[in-house]
Structure formats: C-alpha cells, structure tokens
Design a protein around this nucleic acid. Structure first.
Lengths: 249, 249
DNA sequence: TATTTAGGTTGATATGAATCAACTCTGAAC
DNA sequence: GTTCAGAGTTGATTCATATCAACCTAAATA
C-alpha cells in the first residue's frame, strides 16, 4: 500500500495515464483491484522485445513510458510496421484469438510496461462491467487504428502520409497531456518510412521540404510543428466535408 | 421448435456455417440458447444497407448468405472499401467501442443475416465461456484481416494484389466447403479496385493478362482459377521463408 | 582521438500505375 | 426491340515515387 515506487513503477491509482488506459471510468476500489493484478517489471532497454511472433499469449501490456514498434515480415523477408505504441496504449490484442502473438513488439527506447496476466484480467472483466467496457474500447481502437492505417495507404500521397503521421503523433501526445507542437520522437525515419509504405529517401525529401516550407521540422529525435494549419492542410485532413461519411455511393 | 424455416431462415443448429460462425465449439444446449436470441429478418436486397456510419449499435450481424461490402469515405469524398463479408463472417465489430457504427455496410447481392442483439448476446457470453472465446476469435480475425489488408497495400504491386485477392476469396470459399477454383463473385471490379488501392483500368488490364496467361479468369460474376500454382506465384505467397516472422531486424 | 557503421541526405534516372480519352458491352427501363 | 446508363476495356501519355548511387553526419567502438 504505502510502498515506495520508482517513476517506472507507479500504481494505477497514482498513474497519470488513467484517462487513457484501463482505469478509465473505474471507481477507486475497482482501480485498487486492477492494481492488484498488474505485474510491473524492470523497464525494457532499447532494442529489447516485449514479445515476439509465435510467443504464447500470457498477458496484455499497457505502455507506461517509452515507445514500442509492432512489426512482422512478409514471406519475402520485407519488414512490415503495423504501428507505434505510446504510453497508455495497450499491446497484445493480436493474440486474443489464437493465444499466440502474431507480431513482434520491440522497444524503440527505454520502455516500461504494466503487464496484465490475461487469466486474472479476464476474470476481473467478468466482475467489473466498466472494465469490460473499457476492454471493448481498447479492442475497438485497435481495429479502427488498423483501418485508418489502410486508409492512409490507399488514399494518401507521400506528402499527406508524412504530414498525417506527424499530426497523429502530435494529437496522441496532446491527448496524454504532453506538449503537442514540440516533442521527442524516438522513432527512426526508416521505421516511419516502412510504416507509411514509402522509402527512407522519400521521407527524407519530404521532411526537408516541410522544414523549408515552415510546416514542421524533424531533426534527430525532436519534432517541432511550426504551423499546425499548414500541417493539417498538407495532410489533407482539414477540409471538413459534411456529407462525407454518409452512404450515398 | 418445429416451425418451418426457409433457406434464408435456418436455425443455428441446422446451419451449415456452424464451423465458421459463433456456434463453433458450443454444446447442443448452448447452441439452443444462442438460437433463441438470434433475430432472423427478411433478406436484404442488393443495394440495401445493413447499417450506415453513425447508426446506433444494436446488434452484431452474422452473414447467412450473400456478400456485404464495408466502406466509408475520406474527408474529400473518396470511397474506401474496408472489406467484403461472406457467409459466416461477422459484421459490427467496428462499433463495439463507441456503440455507433463507424462504416457503411451494403449488400452487394441478395443477402440474409442473423442479427444478434448485443445486449442479449453480451449476457450470453458472460454465461458461456466457449461463446466468449469464439467472440475473441471473431474480434481477433477482424484485427488480423485489417493488418493483412495493410500489408497488401504497403508491400504488394498491382499484379500481386489482384492475385492475392482472388486467392483469398478462393480460400474463404474453400474453408466454407464450397468450390474454390470456380465460384460466383458478386463484387464489381470497381469495388475490388478501390479495396486494393488501384484504379478500375489497372484491375481490368491485370485480369486480361491473367486470362491470357492461363492463371485465372474473372468474367461477369464468375471466377475460374486455371492454375492455382501460377496464381500463388503471382500473388507472391508461395515462397516459404523459414525465418520470415522471426524478430531479427 | 581515430575508426567504423548505421542512419540520413541529395541527385539522376527508371518505372509502375494513374490519368485521360475513346470505345464497347451488358442489362435494365421503356 | 430500342434506348440508355453504368461497368468494363484498351491505348497513349504523364507523373509520383522507387531505385540506384554517392556522399554526409553522428553516435558507438576501439
């Protein structure tokens, strides 16, 4: 109860990510019960895997700090990057059906995670309707994120993809209460290129252009958004279109 | 119990899709309980919507017969096709979190669905662990399908995309016990093009080539696969690569 | 401090698929 | 049967991004 925890080892009830992570909407005593099943281990070092494809599924993982890349390979050995997971995000949904992980999850930076042993977690969701609902949100988010990734790949050109990626990261930091127009991103341009279905050269050229045009700068691991409107415009997500999601076609 | 049902109105316990759909792994009496909550309505005509974006989420839908296209629009009004749902597939997962549908679902052919009112279904999963597990499979499938779609879009050229699409449809029919090298596909080439991130012209050219090369023919609504090996080869999914999903990079 | 190496940049060139345009086919409506 | 619209085809051309290649930079290692 009153034990001392390091910054990497905070209980759910003291965690700044409550609004994003599983505790959302839970009562104090319910959070306490969740806290009791959370397994907090030593942080992963950069380059360490949280899990690998084909590993047994033992737990869901909530990111506490750091960044994790979820990836796999095509049968010709090319890498596919499925996404990047930030603090508050949940990893492991891919294994719910088969009880084996389908992809690899690697820390891109020092990363600490809260491990939720699935057996225990599952029992708890049976008892706490709100936790079950939050689990649905997490799952749903995973599905919708995938669809958004597809949308980006089918319908956006290179400029729009890069702009949308930067904007998306900015939004995700904002929703976590961090600065959204200036932040540290421990993701290689190379990995972003793969995620966006582009080459590193193309990403590099586009970032050079964004910098020159006063849109945004991404040098080293620092992202600075100079003009949010320009960025949104470049991403092609500004034009509000009333009838857009109506089924008319 | 002994009521007469049309071909479009079969109870779960007599349904040929048991192996694919929710009843998988359930006991006879459990299937009975599932049967009791299923709401079977008149079939949808071609062009009718099962649900539209922003509709309230009331139920999950299991396709009994026909084909449904799940789609939405970008904010610039371009259509995005997320997938095609065949008999045994489940629609509505996209709404689990927000309790509102995110996309539009339209029948591409006369389509009958089994409606599972979510409230009742949810209660039943609480009581039947096997049904809950099957629900996890369904959700997981939705996530993995999305990832596979992304993979196709990032890493495959036009030929491979079309070949993989045809092969994928073939496999899905095969797993349902239908003919897999000759089948009816009520999907417009136009819709496939959108799904694959290509133009109708490109799809048309590729299909002409496949026909000329004796790979496969898709004329009108009839698909005939002439040479499965060639098709797999063209799709680029034949090369088996041992170390492919290992985390080495 | 020197060396190595992975990541990133920049330029020249190639190419796959989009675009534009004209035309044909097919099935539905009259 | 005729008309018409939407779907599909085919060809010529354009263009965005990949590819190839050389080089730079900074962090890691010796």
């Amino acid at each position: 109860m009153s034990e001392v925890r390091s910054a990497f080892n905070v209980s759910c009830k003291n965690c700044g990510l409550q609004k994003i992570c599983f505790p959302t909407g839970l009562q104090k005593d319910e959070i306490e019960r969740l806290d009791n099943i959370v397994d907090r281990r030593a942080p992963l070092k950069k380059g360490q895997h949280l899990f690998e494809a084909n590993d047994n599924f033992n737990a869901l993982y909530a990111i506490r700090a750091g960044v994790v890349k979820l990836y796999s390979f095509t049968n010709t050995g090319e890498e596919i990057v499925h996404g990047f997971y930030l603090p508050g995000d949940v990893l492991g949904i891919d294994a719910l059906g088969s009880r084996r992980h389908q992809y690899n999850a690697i820390a891109l930076d020092t990363t600490s995670v809260c491990s939720l042993p699935f057996e225990k977690f599952s029992n708890l969701t049976d008892e706490l309707p709100q936790l079950n609902k939050q689990m649905m949100n997490v799952i749903s988010k995973e599905v919708l994120d995938g669809r958004m990734h597809s949308e980006l790949l089918v319908r956006r050109n290179a400029d729009q993809r890069v702009a949308q990626f930067i904007w998306n990261m900015s939004e995700r930091y904002r929703s976590r209460g961090y600065a959204s127009s200036e932040f540290r991103l421990s993701i290689l341009h190379r990995d972003v290129a793969v995620y966006l279905g582009l080459t590193p050269e193309t990403v590099s050229r586009i970032l050079a252009k964004f910098h020159a045009d006063g849109v945004a700068t991404w040098k080293k691991k620092e992202v600075v958004i100079h003009d949010m409107d320009k960025l949104l415009n470049t991403a092609g997500i500004q034009t509000s279109c009333d009838s857009c999601n109506k089924a008319t076609a």
